[in-house]
């Protein structure tokens, strides 16, 4: 018995699970945040609301809350699609361009070609899905990194949007009422709420449920967590990725509808920063850029945090440049926190 090809490393054996008497409070916090990623952004949002309501009496007034909700509705809706992509360990820089392109398509086919509102919306959803599928095909067939794919298609879709719109804004008064419906309001407890913001909340609830309770949702997480492991487990990862980009495209088309209602027009120059703003919301919401970890509810909270910070600082008469700086700091803090949380040990 001369040779063995491996050595046995002695170890203390399996640690027992369950009770952890030796954990420090910091480690406990790390484990808590690891198990419940949305606790962080929820606490931040709550603290921000408390602080800003102390700084300005106007902050909690219904009109102001309504304003924040309206400001957040577009980016909050986009962030739902962005979350799905980021959960697969991807990223979508083209989301804003897809939104603008679909908003122009919806507006133009109805305003200039007389298509009824319902058909214009459906056509917009088809265009959104098509754009998303182009991204998905490039990612899955050509195996290009999502960052590069969507950087390219960002320019392609934006150029298509300029070409199709002739760089001209389409006025809301020329559109059917259905396209502008997302900007209509109703009143709850003295606060005027747009249907667009309600749509955003319902979309978040729906997607959160689907991600948690369907096989497709589990496969999104598994693919983002470890694509090779998912493939070996029998998940058709390319199909999962393709469907993720396609569904994100449809969600961007929904955000285009919200956008039209919000600005009561369709502008080819709108939404150019929505890609970075949506990534900001997703990251602040606790979803990991490395994929497989996070929740769509967090992204809504992230969008609200950004909205509340900008609004609250403006009410406190802080210069807009400091609002931007605050959002930047939030992103850095959120990603650092994610890195720390990911280092959790059993």
């Amino acid at each position: 018995m001369s040779t063995t090809l491996s050595t046995n490393r002695p170890s203390g054996g399996a640690p027992s699970e369950g009770d952890h008497p030796h954990r420090s409070p910091l480690t406990r916090l790390q484990h808590l945040l690891h198990a419940q990623a949305t606790i962080g952004p929820a606490v931040v949002l709550l603290l921000a609301v408390i602080v800003f309501s102390l700084l300005s009496t106007r902050f909690l007034q219904p009109a102001n809350i309504s304003l924040v909700l309206q400001q957040v509705a577009v980016v909050g809706t986009i962030a739902v699609g962005q979350t799905i992509i980021i959960l697969t360990a991807g990223i979508d820089l083209s989301c804003g361009a897809i939104m603008v392109l679909t908003s122009i398509v919806m507006a133009k086919v109805s305003a200039e070609h007389g298509l009824p509102g319902v058909l214009a919306l459906l056509l917009g959803f088809l265009v959104g899905a098509g754009c998303g599928l182009v991204n998905g095909l490039l990612v899955t067939r050509l195996k290009l990194p999502p960052f590069i794919v969507t950087l390219g298609t960002l320019n392609v879709f934006f150029a298509l949007n300029l070409w199709y719109s002739g760089s001209a804004t389409i006025r809301g008064t020329d559109m059917p009422a259905l396209l502008l419906w997302t900007g209509q309001t109703f009143t709850i407890g003295g606060t005027r709420v747009t249907y667009g913001s309600i749509g955003m909340v319902l979309l978040v609830a729906l997607v959160a449920f689907v991600l948690k309770n369907t096989a497709w949702g589990r496969h999104i997480y598994a693919t983002g967590d470890d694509a090779e492991a998912a493939r070996l487990s029998g998940i058709r990862t390319n199909r999962v990725l393709l469907s993720a980009y396609g569904i994100a495209g449809v969600i961007y088309a929904l955000s285009a509808w919200v956008l039209i209602g919000r600005i009561a027009s369709a502008s080819p120059q709108a939404g150019q920063l929505e890609n970075l703003d949506s990534i900001t919301a997703v990251v602040i919401g606790g979803t990991s850029l490395f994929g497989g970890r996070g929740a769509v509810v967090g992204s809504l909270l992230g969008a609200l945090i950004v909205g509340v910070f900008r609004n609250g600082l403006a009410l406190a008469r802080v210069d807009v440049l400091w609002q931007t700086l605050a959002v930047g700091v939030l992103v850095i803090v959120a990603v650092s926190l994610d890195q720390w949380i990911r280092k959790v040990r059993p």
């Binding site: 589990r218 470890d226 487990s233 970890r293």
Partner: peptide, 24 residues
């Protein structure tokens, strides 16, 4: 059925989800 060296599990999913991964 194959148990791969890399284990082919999704670390962030729970045990039950992993057991039924791909055939929920």
């Amino acid at each position: 059925e194959t148990v791969y060296q890399s284990l082919a599990v999704a670390p962030s999913l729970d045990i039950a989800s992993n057991l039924f991964l791909g055939r929920e």
